[in-house]
Computed example of a mutant assay.
Amino acid sequence: MEAGKKQMFATLVGCNYAGTPHELRGCINDVLAMRDTLVARFGFAPADITVLTDDDRRGVLPTGANIKRALADMVARAAPGDALFFHYSGHGTLVPHRRAHGHDARQDDEAIVPCDFNLITDVDFRQLVDRMPQGATFTMVSDSCHSGGLIDQEKEQIGPAVADGTTTSATSATRAVRARFLPYAAVVGHLSGASGVDASHHVADHLLALFGADASAKFHHQQRHHDSASSPDGGILLSGCQTDETSADVAADDEAADGGKACGAFSSAVQAVLAAHPAPLSNREVVSRARELLRDQGFEQHPCLYCSDANADAPFLCQQQHKEPAAIPAL
């Protein structure tokens, strides 16, 4: 590598859960479209992009352990100033605290649901960002339900407490949609059949029994806490919705003007925003424009932005100028 040259690495994960009661349709399409965009617009080298999908085409499934391993490999390769990117399309869920009584969203933590249901939580993403080299960035796009706040303790820039002026549309989405959400009870019910632990137990008991050390750091006593008084970090989260909302998985429509492929509403909105604005856009602009587009399309979800003040107005994926398209090899 040329001395001083910034490197860019990406991990893209799409889980459709085919053949299960929780099947989605657009998640793999989302990450394949993002892969093309990373190469053509942002200059990522194809060899530096890891794609994990649950369609078995490459043999490496997006299990919890495989996703965390791919993310850890990116961090291990990163140097100060590098740009790391993670796109996740799939189900999300909320995990109650062990001591929570009743259902109170303020007592719940956000998590994504890999294909083996080995949850990856906001604590895992916090710890990953804390391991980043100084000056490097970790940009995460999560097109999943309850994805607001998926990097624990990251500063809210656009979200429930800091709105950007958009309002909910009175229209409705024109294509069939399904929420990318698995209720907590469904997650526990699925895991209990394999773990042998009674379904009345907290999800942590099931995950520790099934996955041991590969279970989320949230469920291990030695988890490390972020010092909020420390200098701003390189974590940047663009979430498909607020913590208390669901993200839409949009069915295919052969009559749609855009070709009608199944997709995530947020992922599709990000692609549309980038296509309409070839010049660099800030992270704040990408989220604000995606919010406007989803509102105009009738989706009742509000993308959010969590990052430091400086990163809110920094270019999305550190884009400084238009990149010449690179050749994209077939998968």
Rank of each mutant, 00 (worst) to 15 (best):
T11S: 07
I236D: 03
H221N: 15
R106D: 11
T11L: 08
P21G: 10
P114S: 11
Q134Y: 00
K6G: 03
V273Y: 07
S308A: 10
H103M: 11
L84C: 05
D122H: 06
L182P: 05
T93C: 11
D130E: 12
L293E: 06
P329C: 06
A45T: 06
C15N: 08
A3F: 14
G148Y: 05
F44K: 02
R284T: 02
D313L: 00
D130L: 04
A179S: 12
G90Y: 09
E255L: 02
A215G: 13
S282V: 04
I236V: 13
R106G: 01
V188N: 09
L52H: 02
S267I: 09
R126M: 14
G165F: 00
S89V: 07
G235W: 04
V270P: 03
T171C: 14
G159C: 04
A3R: 15
E300C: 13
G26T: 05
P183H: 12
D258E: 09
P96S: 10
D296L: 13
A265R: 05
P280G: 06
R41H: 00
T63K: 00
A194H: 13
R289Q: 15
N311V: 03
F44M: 00
T171P: 02
F85A: 10
Q134E: 12
A33D: 13
L61R: 12
K155D: 11
D48K: 02
K6N: 08
L38T: 04
A18F: 11
V270F: 10
A105H: 13
L305D: 01
A45D: 12
R77P: 06
A170E: 15
S147G: 12
S192N: 09
P21W: 10
S195Q: 15
T63M: 01
F299S: 01
F86I: 06
C241R: 08
L52R: 02
Q223T: 15
D309T: 08
H101R: 15
M8E: 03
H146N: 09
L238M: 10
L191K: 09
A173W: 05
V287E: 00
R224G: 10
I151Q: 08
K5G: 06
M8T: 02
A47V: 03
M74C: 09
I120G: 04
V113D: 08
D122N: 10
A72Y: 13
A76T: 15
E292H: 12
R77H: 08
V286F: 01
L128T: 11
C115F: 06
S231K: 11
D164L: 00
N29C: 01
H225V: 15
L281K: 02
D227K: 15
Y17V: 10
H87G: 05
K155L: 10
R41N: 01
C263P: 00
A70C: 07
N311M: 14
L24V: 12
V113P: 03
D258Y: 03
G259Q: 04
D143A: 09
Q320N: 08
P325F: 03
Y306D: 11
A330H: 10
T93L: 05
G298Y: 08
L207F: 13
L207K: 15
A330N: 09
